[in-house]
Design a protein around this nucleic acid. Structure first.
Lengths: 183, 183
DNA sequence: TACTTCATGTAAGGAGTTACATGATTTT
DNA sequence: AAAATCATGTAACTCCTTACATGAAGTA
């Protein structure tokens, strides 16, 4: 059920990782598509190992450091991920705090809201930049002879992100100029 | 802190409502921008009344029905909503289950995924239709002489929704045709 | 000197979902 | 005859966030 554990399987289907690595990847590679804290990751990995979805190899490091616990997906985990991937996804709710604030634009000071729109636009401009860099990076890693290269799937998702950021930026600009004309 | 109670104040800033009305509006008027269940709404309204953000008028109805509890925003509630609206909003995470599934496209059956993409596209086509209807409805309610009409803010948010649905549909089509060409 | 990185985790609490309960009336 | 509508709520549970804890090494 929970898509959090499927997000973890998603990462492990591509390469073995430690819990620490997964946290890093969720907050960078998967970009802001999925995030998680260590409190969710570590206990969930223990459960997933008990259920045979992943397996564990403990790698010793320097003495002063906790051993790295590197998890790999099992055949059963891969099957489960494939099954879940092909299942219908429920419709999502956007639930964006800034949009909720925009719904209250009429009762706020126009000058402040102009500022907020500019800040938001810059924030999404920055995300766009990151995604564009990621596309170049992924294109470099792409194996053009393999039509089932996971990189192709990564690219599709990042491309969604790029269009989304562009849309958000345009919406901010348009709304800001409407606000200006209203004054 | 919690934006759930601000979502409720957002609705009450426009008109007095019962908890039941709010649930309806969150699942229609605010469209899929914010959702909530009765378990969240009723206890939160009690707290908000204690804190003086809203006030309550009990309206008797037929005997066989529970009395309608109609809540209005207070001056203090309106101030708080205004303050919150003008505050910076934190960056959001998209967290869309279907995008996560698309990230796993490489390990799934192309035929099934083509079907899923078509279904998703239809789902967003339906949402787009609803938003377009809402725009017509809102344009009818608009008072062109009032530059601070709340309807203008509603329109901006719905317009975001429209562009978002169009983007989603286009992404589904594009990905489906890439999948086709790969086969 | 202070902050960040690596690498594991725990604790506490708030946010959100799904299901249940009441009960006459109205619609299918 | 069955289901939806109005209108309130409660219970149980999962999901998610924030903060805390360890502790040496490397970087600013």
């Amino acid at each position: 059920m929970s898509s959090f554990r499927h997000a973890m399987l998603t990462l492990l289907a591509r390469e073995p990782l430690s819990g620490y690595d997964m946290k890093q990847q969720m907050n960078s590679r998967m970009g802001p598509f999925w995030k998680a804290g260590s409190n969710q990751i570590y206990p969930e990995l223990v459960k997933m190992e008990e259920e045979g979805l992943v397996e564990l190899e403990v790698v010793q490091q320097h003495d002063y450091r906790p051993a790295r616990k590197v998890y790999s997906i099992t055949e059963s985990g891969r099957q489960e991920l494939k099954r879940w991937t092909m299942e219908r996804a429920e419709p999502e709710t956007i639930r964006d705090e800034f949009l909720l604030k925009a719904y209250n634009l009429w009762l706020a000071d126009p000058e402040t809201m102009m500022l907020r729109l500019e800040e938001k636009k810059k924030e999404h401009e920055e995300k766009l930049r990151i995604y564009l860099d990621k596309v170049s990076e992924l294109n470099g890693l792409l194996d053009p002879s393999n039509p089932q290269d996971p990189i192709l799937s990564s690219l599709s998702v990042v491309e969604f992100g790029i269009e989304y950021e562009k849309l958000y930026m345009k919406w901010c600009s348009d709304l800001a100029s409407k606000l200006k004309n209203r004054q």
